[in-house]
Nucleic acid binder design. Structure first.
Length: 855
DNA sequence: GCAAGGTC
């Protein structure tokens, strides 16, 4: 009988292992694979009635992502509007380059492929990515549906052995509609996000000098996220505080003072409040208060639901003051250490198969948790978790998996997040807390006053350390002070003047809640979006961890609102989501949705670009415009007027006349009076970079090409500015041939190359274009400065006459003593020895190197 | 350099 070859692919390594364990009843072999994370678990079993060799492995999330084709990557040559119609392609995601090879290798010769991705749209999409990776390696032709199918999809609702086996016995097919709905979302997000981001980044950077943001980004998720923060700011600033009054009666009884408040509540008119107080005071002599009513009510504080991701983010931010981004990262780390279950889940209900007992015994094995769990059990817990909550099926709620001793984890944040997760787990299985409210009502004259005593009669889940601070609001030990019909003699009446308070800025926890409510981002991406708007400097985090919009954030929001409020509205995202859902359910085809949505956003883009000047007035109030800054510097090639040099984080030249901005690199600039670029007639400038070497550049050529060039990684040599960086568009420009300044190989470099066997070619010595009494090497630190006390001028021979011995170009020298130009080689002639009062470095090496090279 | 979505 032929043994079938079956490959199962899961979305992540942990699920691959769970599946292998369940299907093989625990007897499988594991081997390493090309990607250390995606191991392969093998066993023999039956597949569709035949004996089969089954391999289970995984990918690491998406294998591919979308990007523009290469020609669209240049910010300067591509108009942002074109991006709406640009070609896009699927490219292997950064982290997945090994995964593709891994899949093709493992799929070689297989008969069947079983896709065990998470049961959501993204999972369906990744399933298709896996198919495209393995289709050429399979022995059989990949058929994705029908009787002759060779590619199947496992749909599981829980990761229990029973459910995994059930899923394996009822395999279905990949849902192409769901998969393509993900591509729809990706294409729209990419094109819209990148087009708007590029356009507004360039627009604002070229316009405002004090705006140091490298990037002014726009995104269908990040921008509405910013919107929530600014909307709250608006609520705060619109708020006008109102004065109100509370009538308070302080009663003394048994050496204790209690404050009773008028049943009228807040009184907003001062006259009314004063009148009531006066009436009470005027008749206080002889008038007694009387307790006319005592009511006792109980209030149940429900235990928390099992923990899902969003809830964890909110709780940790609120109670532990750790940012959602950080919590997500700590939880991931706890998960990979095997301490907690998978931390990205929407489920808030334990599945029926969930083994609570197993978790409890794991906790009991540590001395930290043993007494707590023991105490917990002694109260006949665990209770079944609270009614309500959702079981999404793929991942159970976040719970501890293994006990950890206090102090044994990586750092304090790990400790606190782990403790919170354990506490939430125990709390979700505890008793509800019960609060008893005792409300007393007292009558003085015709006025009623109340006093409330709250007692926590059943602490329940509030006893776990993460929640104990709730208990502080209850006066646990208070005795009952008053009885029905008691008469009160000893009291004073007073008026408390107060003001209504504005809402506070959004906390991270509030923001997570709003994003979840409006469907902005997913549990895994919400922390990233929040982090994004902080990193881009649209909001700042206050010391109380509240999100305060910055001026930039506020201006962007106001600008969008002025031009097109939908750009910041959360509704737009949900509208797109609805259309995508129709693709997923097969009601509409993907292409028409992409076209439809892009058309809408393209129109928005065009309108936004036409009206962006309305944003200027907003920005000008806060950011300095280029017009009002800078000093006249070099000549513009278009209008021949002086451009202004603006030296900020991003150096720029700004032509007021042409209203154009040229970006310059970091460093200092000197003017090269009169020398112009042959290509565009802009005046050349000398740039002294952080390496301290002067470099001649045309600002226009530099600005046009700067986006493609990483200057830090380049080595510098004379003439590079206008030649080697291909900045210059003119081949006839003499400045491309800047080797007028070069002398010859650097002796110091030659020596170093000898010693270190460096494969790098040695540097070149050149006369500084700024000061002809200085000679530099373009690579090493060698620098030669002639003393002004003895040397008048040094220059290169116009004819490129070279030294016969070492091939260096000859220099002429004019000294104070001789007054005539003398000619010689820097290395080989004694001429320079006299003025330098030293020999040139490593001449012998220099010569030997030359000789060897010329052999 | 740019979006958002998975996962390490």
């Amino acid at each position: 009988m032929i043994m079938l070859q079956v490959l199962i692919v899961a979305e992540k390594p942990s699920i691959a292992e769970t599946v292998a364990n369940a299907l093989s009843q625990g007897s499988y072999c594991t081997r390493a694979a090309r990607t250390s994370a995606c191991r392969v678990h093998e066993f023999q079993s039956y597949f569709r009635g035949q004996k089969a060799n089954i391999k289970v492995t995984s990918v690491l999330g998406h294998v591919y992502g979308f990007d523009f084709t290469k020609e669209y990557n240049d910010w300067n040559s591509v108009d942002a509007e074109e991006l709406f119609f640009a070609g896009i392609r699927k490219v292997v995601a950064d982290s997945s380059s090994k995964v593709v090879k891994h899949l093709t290798k493992e799929a070689t010769g297989i008969d069947y492929l079983v896709l065990w991705l998470d049961c959501d749209r993204e999972g369906e999409n990744i399933a298709c990515e896996v198919i495209s990776c393995v289709k050429d390696s399979m022995r059989s032709v990949p058929v994705i549906s029908g009787n002759r199918a060779t590619v199947f999809r496992a749909k599981f609702s829980a990761l229990t052995t029973r459910d995994i086996c059930r899923a394996m016995n009822s395999l279905t097919f990949v849902d192409i509609n769901q998969a393509s709905s993900v591509d729809v979302r990706a294409e729209i997000d990419l094109k819209v996000g990148v087009a708007f981001t590029r356009f507004q980044t360039q627009y604002f950077r070229d316009k405002f000098s004090s705006l140091d943001s490298k990037l002014v980004s726009y995104g269908p998720c990040q921008t509405p996220t910013l919107g929530f923060c600014v909307a709250r700011l608006d609520e705060i600033s619109k708020f006008s505080p109102e004065t109100f009054f509370l009538i308070v009666v302080n009663v003394r009884k048994d050496n204790r003072t209690t404050s009773w408040y008028s049943c009228r509540g807040k009184i907003f008119e001062r006259q009314v409040a004063n009148a009531v107080v006066e009436r009470l005071n005027s008749c206080s002599n002889g008038i007694l208060g009387k307790i006319i009513d005592i009511t006792t009510t109980t209030e149940r504080r429900k235990r928390p639901l099992p923990l899902n991701t969003v809830e964890l983010l909110k709780l940790a931010s609120k109670k532990l003051k750790i940012s959602p981004h950080q919590v997500a990262s700590v939880a991931e780390s706890l998960y990979t250490q095997g301490l907690i279950s998978y931390p990205r889940t929407e489920s808030s209900k334990y599945p029926p198969s969930f083994d609570i007992e197993a978790v409890l015994s794991e906790l009991e094995r540590t001395s930290t948790w043993f007494p707590i769990v023991k105490n917990f059990r002694e109260r006949n817990y665990p209770n079944k978790s609270r009614q309500g909550g959702v079981d999404k099926g793929d991942h159970p709620p976040i719970t501890p998996v293994r006990g950890a001793e206090r102090g044994s984890l990586r750092n304090a944040e790990h400790e606190r997040v782990y403790e919170l997760i354990v506490n939430c787990f125990l709390a979700s299985l505890s008793e509800d807390a019960v609060v008893t409210n005792q409300q007393y009502c007292m009558l003085i004259g015709r006025e009623k006053f109340f006093f409330c005593q709250r007692k926590l009669t059943v602490p329940g889940w509030l006893e776990f350390s993460s929640f104990t601070h709730y208990m502080e609001s209850f006066n646990m030990n208070s005795q009952i002070l008053f009885e029905q019909n008691d008469l009160i003699e000893d009291f004073t009446v007073s008026l408390e003047e107060m003001q209504t308070e504005p809402p506070k800025y959004l906390s991270e926890s509030d923001l997570v809640g709003l994003m979840e409510k409006h469907g902005i981002g997913t549990d895994a991406s919400i922390p990233t979006h929040i982090n994004n708007i902080i990193m881009r400097d649209y909001v700042r985090l206050s010391s109380e961890r509240r999100l305060i919009p910055t001026q930039l954030g506020i201006l962007l929001y106001r600008g969008y609102q002025k031009i097109d409020p939908q750009l910041v509205s959360p509704v737009v995202r949900s509208h797109i989501e609805q259309e995508i859902s129709q693709v997923a359910s097969g009601q509409v085809d993907a292409i028409s949705v992409v076209e439809h949505c892009l058309k809408i956003f393209w129109k928005k883009f065009v309108y936004f670009r036409e009206h962006i000047e309305t944003m200027d007035t907003l920005f000008e109030t806060v950011f300095t415009t280029l017009h009002s800054r800078g000093k006249n510097f070099s000549l513009c090639g278009r209008c021949n007027r002086y451009m202004k040099l603006i030296e900020e984080k991003q150096n720029r030249l700004f032509c007021m006349n042409c209203n154009d901005t040229l970006r310059l690199p970091t460093g200092k600039f000197h003017i090269m009076n009169g020398y112009k670029c042959q290509g565009d007639a802009f005046e050349l400038v000398t740039w002294v970079s952080s390496w301290g070497r002067p470099l001649l550049i045309c600002p226009k050529c530099f600005s046009d090409s700067s986006s493609n060039t990483n200057f830090k990684e380049l080595e510098w040599y004379p003439g590079m500015g206008c030649t080697e960086l291909s900045m210059c568009r003119s081949f006839s420009c003499p400045w491309r041939q800047w080797h007028q300044c070069t002398i010859g190989l650097c002796g110091q470099c030659v020596q170093q190359a000898e010693v270190s066997k460096s494969p790098l070619s040695p540097g070149v010595l050149f006369l500084s274009p700024l000061d002809s009494l200085q000679i530099y090497c373009n690579r090493c630190s060698f620098c030669l400065k002639f003393s002004r006390d003895s040397v008048v001028q040094v220059g290169l021979e116009e004819q490129t006459e070279k030294c016969n011995v070492c091939h260096s170009r000859k220099l002429w020298l004019e000294t104070l003593t001789s007054n005539i130009k003398q000619k010689g080689c820097l290395y080989c002639d004694s001429l320079f020895l006299v003025v330098l009062k030293r020999d040139m470095p490593r001449r012998a090496f220099h010569v030997s190197y030359r000789k060897r090279r010329t052999k």
